[in-house]
Write a protein that binds this DNA or RNA. Structure first.
Lengths: 239, 239
DNA sequence: CCTGGGCATAAACATATGTGAGTGCAGCTA
DNA sequence: TAGCTGCACTCACATATGTTTATGCCCAGG
C-alpha cells in the first residue's frame, strides 16, 4: 500500500519521484500505539514527528475542571505533530483513539529536507497550513452554528478526508469514535451529542451503526452543516 | 521604528543581518486600509501576502444567517494571509478593525526565500504555526471554558501579544475593538460580552475605558482564564 | 455461563447564554 | 444648537444545551 502521506500530498500538487523517495526514506521506524494511550504528551519536546499510517488520533487539551477539548481529529496520512519540529514544546497532547500505526520522522531529517528540497518543504508547510484552515473552520462552526449543524459539518469533513486517503467504501466510512469523544470535539455534552445524532438519523441524513457511518443524503447534510470543502484544499495546484 | 515582524521573529530565534535585510527588502509597497474595509476577501487568490505594520485586523467568516465568526485577531507584526502563499484560495476574509498600515510581500519573493534561505523559511513557517497554536487554544477556550473565562483568556493573550511588539505602556494597551467584535470573536452575543466585561471589572481584574485596557490583577486574570503562555512560543530557540 | 464495564439512550430538571426592544451618552456634522 | 449615529449598557423573557441519574445492551474475560 502506498504511503498515505504521499497520497494526501499528491492530491494537492505533483511530487517528483525524488521527492517521494525522500519522504519514504524520512521514516526512521514504525511503532504501534494502543487505543487510549498518549502518542505525545503536553510539555514534551519531541526530537521526531509522528506520521499516522493507520488508525484515528486526536489532539487535545485538558482544562482545570477535568474537561477535555479535542482540537483536531487525525486520520491516516496526517502528521500528528509536524509543528513540534519548529514549535519545540508541545502545547497539547496527542492521543490514540484506536490502535494506531505510526511512522516517526526525526527532526534532523526534516531540517535536512528544508535545507535541500524547497518544494517538498513547501508541501510540508502546506500540510500544517491545512491543519490551520481546519482549525479556523472548526472555530466558526463552534462559535456560530447550532449543535446539529456543527455535527453535520464535522461528519461532512471527516467523510471527505477519509475518502481522500482511500478509507471510504462507497458512502460508508469506519468511524470508531465514541459519542463522548465527539462531545469533546464539538464542545458538547455526551447527552447532547446523542440527541443531535438522533436528529440527523431521524431526518434520514446519516446512518451510524457501531463504527460504520453511512452518508444517506449528502446534499442535505452539507446544507445543514453549511459545509463547503474549499478549506480542505483538495485541488491540485502548483505550490 | 524597526519592522514589527522582525521584532516578533527575533523574540523566537536570532536572525542574521542578511536575513533581516531580505525581510526588509521583501516589502514591495505599503498601503493604508481604512477601518471596516476588507483587506482580503473570501475567494480571492492573492499574489502577495499582507503584513500588518500598524492597526488591528480580523480574519472572519460569515455563516448563513448573517452571523459572523472572527477566527483570528491580528496586531502589528502579524502576517494576515501568509498562508495564501501556499493555500492559494482564501477560505475567509480579512477585515481592518481600525485604520491599518499594510506592507505587501509578493508571493514570488516568498518563493525565492524558500528556495534560498532555509532558516528564514522555517521562521516564516513558524509564524504560521503560531497562528495555528492560537487557533487550538481558542478552540479549547470556546468549547470548554465559561464565557467569563474565555474573555479573560483572550485579554491575557492580546495583552501579551501587544507587549511583545512594543505596544504596551505599562499595564495598559490600546484595544480599539467594540463589544460586538469581541462577541464575534468569542462566539457570544453582544449583550453577554457586556455582562462578562462588567464582571471582570467588578472583580477588579481589568479597567476598560474607551479603547484603553488596563490589567489591574494579572494573576487573577490568568487564573480566571486558565491562561498559560506556552502556546505563544515567546521563547528564543534555535529553529 | 455469568459478570462487569463501556457505551448508547432516556427523562426530568437546571442554567448559561441568547433575543428583542429600549435608554442614554459622546462625538460628529449640518 | 440640533439632530444623527455608533456604541455601551439594561431589563424581561426565551431557549439551547448541560447535569444528574438511570436503564439496557453488547461483548470480553474469568
Amino acid at each position: 500500500m502506498t504511503n498515505p502521506l504521499i497520497l494526501k500530498l499528491e492530491q494537492r500538487d505533483r511530487l517528483s519521484d525524488e521527492e517521494k523517495k525522500v519522504l519514504e526514506n524520512a521514516i526512521s521506524r514504525v511503532r504501534v500505539v494502543e487505543a487510549d494511550e498518549d502518542i505525545v504528551r503536553e510539555g514534551d519536546r519531541p526530537t521526531e514527528s509522528s506520521l499516522l499510517l493507520d488508525g484515528f488520533a486526536a489532539r487535545y487539551k485538558i482544562v482545570s475542571n477535568g474537561r477535555r477539548q479535542i482540537s483536531a481529529l487525525h486520520v491516516a496520512g496526517d502528521f500528528l505533530d509536524l509543528h513540534s519540529f519548529l514549535l519545540k514544546t508541545m502545547d497539547h497532547g496527542v492521543l490514540a483513539l484506536t490502535t494506531c500505526r505510526i511512522a516517526t520522522v526525526p527532526h534532523a531529517t526534516l531540517e535536512k529536507i528544508t535545507d535541500e528540497y524547497p518544494h517538498l518543504t513547501r508541501m510540508l508547510w502546506l500540510n500544517t497550513l491545512i491543519d490551520g484552515a481546519i482549525h479556523r473552520e472548526w472555530l466558526t462552526a463552534m462559535g456560530r452554528l447550532s449543535a446539529t449543524a456543527h455535527m453535520a459539518h464535522l461528519i461532512c469533513e471527516l467523510y471527505l478526508r477519509l475518502k481522500t486517503v482511500g478509507r471510504a467504501e462507497g458512502d460508508t466510512v469506519q468511524l470508531p469514535i465514541t459519542q463522548a469523544e465527539l462531545g469533546d470535539t464539538l464542545g458538547l455534552s455526551t447527552v447532547h451529542v446523542n440527541r443531535v445524532l438522533q436528529e440527523l438519523r431521524k431526518e434520514g441524513m446519516i446512518r451510524f451503526q457501531g463504527d460504520a457511518l453511512t452518508i444517506l443524503d449528502w446534499e442535505r447534510l452539507k446544507t445543514t452543516g453549511e459545509f463547503t470543502s474549499t478549506y480542505l484544499n483538495l485541488q491540485r495546484e502548483s505550490r
